[in-house]
Amino acid sequence: MASEHATKLAVLIDADNAQPTIAEPLLAEVAKYGTAHVKRAYGDWTSNHLKGWKEQLLTQSIQPIQQFGYTSGKNATDSAMIIDAMDLLYSGRFDGFCIVSSDSDFTRLAARIRESGLIVYGFGERKTPDPFVAACDKFIYTDILIAKPDEEQPLKPRTAAQLKQDSSLVNLLRNAVEAASDDDGWATLSGVGSIVTKQRPNFDARSYGYNKLSELITATTLFEIDRRSSGEGRPKVIYVRNKSKKPAARD
């Protein structure tokens, strides 16, 4: 059962720029970060290309917001979604926003919401421009949520050898562990995850075939893992250290 202090989120979907098949897995993903108090999908619902959304709107209790295209070549949907987002922001009722689109037009919106101290989760396809991805606190690629076996990037876990060959990944993880570590080189997994997300908002262990960051880090075989007790009845805290790290000399 959700806590009364659970993060309150507003989910705003650019239906013109998102597939209806993402609705269910999208909201399941959103539930990991908080409670969706507002769920709205924007588009011209008189258009045939949005008819696939009807069942999802009903099933997932998403409110459709009608926006006619006033002028050919201009996206009125984006403007309506941005105006609503600002109204919701000024209401002071939310802790964060989920912006679902692959459109760079929402880059400034994401930045503005973050300037107000709220968290922004972005959801979009791999084609999403880098500026929008970087403007979010965390960005989740929707293909990860609806991945199929025949897609270009299968979810089959990468081997240790494959992971080690990915210098960008190795450097990201090693630097994050180093930045979050104590004098002996140990860092909490949560601390590492926080730094990784800040440096690369679109980072996701599932892109490498692993459900959790801990599983990915373990699979690289480059780190020591230590699960420590945090008290009776409490889950153990996972600590990570670069295998090449030597303990600091003690007096």
Rank of each mutant, 00 (worst) to 15 (best):
W53V: 01
S116G: 02
N242W: 10
T142L: 15
G122I: 12
K212N: 07
L172T: 07
R158L: 15
V177H: 05
R200D: 03
P64I: 11
L26G: 04
Q153A: 02
A80Q: 11
V170F: 02
L189T: 06
V196D: 05
Y121D: 02
G52Q: 09
Q165M: 13
G52P: 08
E4C: 03
K156Q: 14
E224A: 10
S102G: 14
M1T: 07
V237K: 14
S3T: 12
Y141H: 14
A160R: 13
W45A: 05
R114E: 04
H5N: 09
I62N: 11
I62A: 01
D150L: 09
I140N: 06
A180C: 12
A111I: 03
I217Q: 03
P201D: 05
Y141E: 14
G117Q: 07
R40L: 12
L189D: 08
F94V: 00
M81T: 00
A80H: 12
A23D: 06
I22T: 07
M1D: 04
R93S: 13
P157L: 11
A147P: 02
Y141R: 14
P235L: 10
D137H: 15
I140A: 05
I83A: 04
I99A: 06
A111P: 02
Q67V: 03
T59Y: 06
A160N: 05
Y208A: 01
H5K: 14
T188I: 00
G96V: 12
T159N: 09
S190E: 14
D166A: 04
R234V: 00
A110I: 00
L88P: 05
F106M: 01
I83Y: 03
W45L: 09
R126C: 04
T128Q: 08
I113M: 08
D251Q: 04
G69A: 01
K51H: 12
D130S: 15
S230T: 15
H5A: 11
K39D: 11
A23F: 04
G209F: 01
A110C: 07
E224T: 06
T71A: 12
G124D: 06
T159I: 00
G52E: 10
D95P: 11
E55T: 14
A18N: 13
A28R: 14
D226G: 02
E115W: 06
I144V: 07
L26A: 03
D130P: 11
R114N: 03
R227L: 09
A2Q: 13
Q66R: 06
V100S: 07
E24D: 10
D78E: 08
T159G: 08
S230R: 13
G209W: 01
I82C: 01
P20L: 00
K127W: 05
K127I: 15
L89A: 10
A135Y: 12
L57E: 08
S3F: 00
L173Q: 00
I22M: 13
D130V: 15
I82Y: 00
C136Q: 05
A111E: 09
L50C: 04
G92F: 02
I65L: 07
D166K: 02
I22L: 14
E115Y: 10
G231R: 01
E115I: 08
R40H: 10
T59I: 09
R234M: 04
S104G: 08
V100K: 06
T128F: 03
D137N: 15
L213K: 10
D204H: 07
